[in-house]
Write a protein that binds this DNA or RNA. Structure first.
Lengths: 250, 250
DNA sequence: CTGGGCATTCTTGTATACAGTTTTCGTCTG
DNA sequence: CAGACGAAAACTGTATACAAGAATGCCCAG
């Protein structure tokens, strides 16, 4: 939300990315201490970040237990997709209503990037770009609240795919995105909505068909990839540096 | 969101209520210290509550300055109403789709309560009930995410009315609510949506027509009305009680 | 073995200390 | 008298301490 580029916002961003890109599978424990250690900040800030992510539905933080990456139930998943479909519909309407030629170029460029990533087999990048396509549309709708809601559901859908979907998702998605752009450009709202609905439907189907698997992974190594801009010991931006009484990873 | 009935949730609730009922006009300063004093908790928790409310759009908390009750711009107000209209539309559709006879009785009871409050001239209660009517619909839609989004926009609309609307708002609203219930009962989605749209439109018109006024009020006395369940000195639920180094209201 | 404590350890809940920023206000100067 | 300066006051940012609640594991009675 607010662009306050504070450290908690960075931590948030790092975790959000990691969760969305499915690097931290649903259910992964997120102990405040350890995150604080990794991010080079105190639990106070980690806790703030976790609260934020919880409100975005990416993290479960039940009262007196360790937070985990969210693990939505099938019912919740359905709700999220239902909501997403509504929002995307409205976004399409708004984008067409406010259409600028520049939008077309912009979106087409994005789709090209998706295609490139797909061909390169860059799963992680593909996933991110696929989400960003929708986010981008959300921006074009010119309603920041709607954009926020859309971003939230899109993120959560990534999470759901990680939980219930099959590993390598965004394949045909690229083509569907291309079709959507074409429909938008043509300015036919009903058509565009129909395609978008179908697109979401196919994503949902992919998600709710087969069951998830658990990959092996390590919290530390994964996070180190996402913690750029944080935890630079010599940053000197901060008065006191957390003591980090490293106890050797248990 | 999560029903964790912790103290911060209570503080949140108290502030939210106070803001929605327009007891704390937009722009009111909310210093962490003073809130902590009032609520009998430390800044840590107050801060958490404020963060939550900020994410709901009820509080502005710019980086290094005192938080205030939110003061949306006209543009933001328009965005919020636009979004609300979308959500309410979808809610109406869903409610009709899942209609139970009990819904009718429930809603009619609610409208009666609104009517009673209106006649009694209970402005504060009227405002709350008017919002709850929509919230109630949100529950009947059977989609908790959608419900959350709806609650959020409804709250924010109350805030907007406090800022830009005329003092005593929810008058004719009761009748419009009655019409909506009738349309829902009839099961005609298109009609119900049309009425709902008109309803939101009239609320919006009321809001964005004349400008706000500032009433006299005092943070302390206002909050004391909303802090029930908090700050009971003998509650003994907590180990340590904040020291409350009362410095006599400046 | 085998389930039920009970001690130990891991983590979270919450208050508080201290440093750094922003505001406020009074005073001084042109 | 307006604006500038500067010191004091009011707050927020962040780390940390300590208490208390879960989780884990171990030992013993049955």
């Amino acid at each position: 939300m607010s662009k306050k580029s504070t450290r908690v916002a960075l931590a948030c961003q790092a975790l959000r990315q990691a969760i969305i890109e499915q690097a931290l599978p649903p259910g992964t424990k997120l102990p405040e201490d350890e995150l604080g250690l990794r991010f080079g900040m105190s639990r106070t800030l980690v806790r703030e970040a976790l609260a934020q992510l919880q409100s975005e539905g990416l993290v479960d933080a039940p009262p007196r237990r360790t937070a985990t990456t969210a693990k939505p139930t099938l019912d919740q998943a359905r709700e999220i997709f239902e909501t997403r479909r509504m929002l995307e519909r409205e976004v399409v309407r708004l984008v067409i209503a406010r259409w600028r030629p520049q939008f077309g170029a912009d979106l087409e460029g994005h789709v090209r990037a998706e295609e490139t990533a797909r061909q390169a087999g860059e799963a992680r990048v593909s996933i991110r770009l696929a989400g960003e396509f929708h986010t981008r549309l959300g921006e074009m709708a010119g309603n920041s609240l709607l954009r926020r809601y859309l971003s939230e559901v899109v993120s959560r859908c990534s999470l759901i795919l990680a939980l219930y979907g099959r590993p390598h998702s965004a394949d045909c998605a690229v083509n569907e995105h291309r079709e959507i752009v074409a429909a938008l450009r043509a300015g036919n709202a009903e058509t565009a909505i129909r395609i978008m609905d179908h697109h979401i439907g196919s994503v949902e189907a992919r998600a709710l068909l087969d069951q998830g698997r658990d990959a092996g992974f390590d919290l530390g190594t994964v996070l180190s990839r996402y913690a750029s801009g944080l935890d630079e010991p010599g940053s000197a931006k901060v008065a006191r540096i957390p003591k980090a009484k490293a106890k050797g990873k248990r």
